[in-house]
Amino acid sequence: MGNTSSLLLREDEIAQIQEKTGFTPNQIERLYSRFTSLDRGNCGTLSREDLLRIPELAINPLGDRIVHAFFQEGTGDSINFLQFMQVLAHFRPIKKNKDLKLNSREQKLKFAFKMYDLDSDGKISRDELLAILQMMVGSNISEEQLTSIAERTIFEADQDGDQMISFAEFCNALERTDVEQKMSIRFLN
């Protein structure tokens, strides 16, 4: 937690992370301090529990999927700081001229797609959509409505007629959405 020695990152580590993720050194240090404060065991990696301990995340309907997304990127049950930063790099705002591949529109959409794709087969089926909808909706919608909404949504986005939404179809359907802006956080300098 407040262990000051663990707050320090080596220069070359910062440079390496900067190169891979595009964060500025200041941002990296800030996020590193966040990383260490999440890391309860002081072991230099985060586990699923470390993330789930954030109350807001635990009650976020998509919290489990978000946490899971962090761990899919890497391997095993823990992620190190670089992996942590690589996931967060998806949400850097897109700047003109210097486009890193991690925070491109496509990468952002891919991350969002993962939220739906429960069985990670690269397609969103009706049931997956329904499950996601059920996690998110409040009390003022009937079950038939929800089912018909799920079907309708698939129908709208489905282009090849397989009753599933592939990633390409997903992107097409979100053509008009300002994903670049919506899926960006202004990380403090």
């Binding site: 309907p61 998509l62 919290g63 967060l88 949400f91 969002a112 998110m136 959405t177 919506k182 956080i185």
Partner: peptide
């Protein structure tokens, strides 16, 4: 639907990134 998924997702990411 996606708007909401994205806003929930971003809420979660913000919590993590602090």
């Amino acid at each position: 639907v996606s708007d909401h998924v994205i806003s929930m997702l971003m809420a979660g990411i913000e919590e993590i990134a602090g």
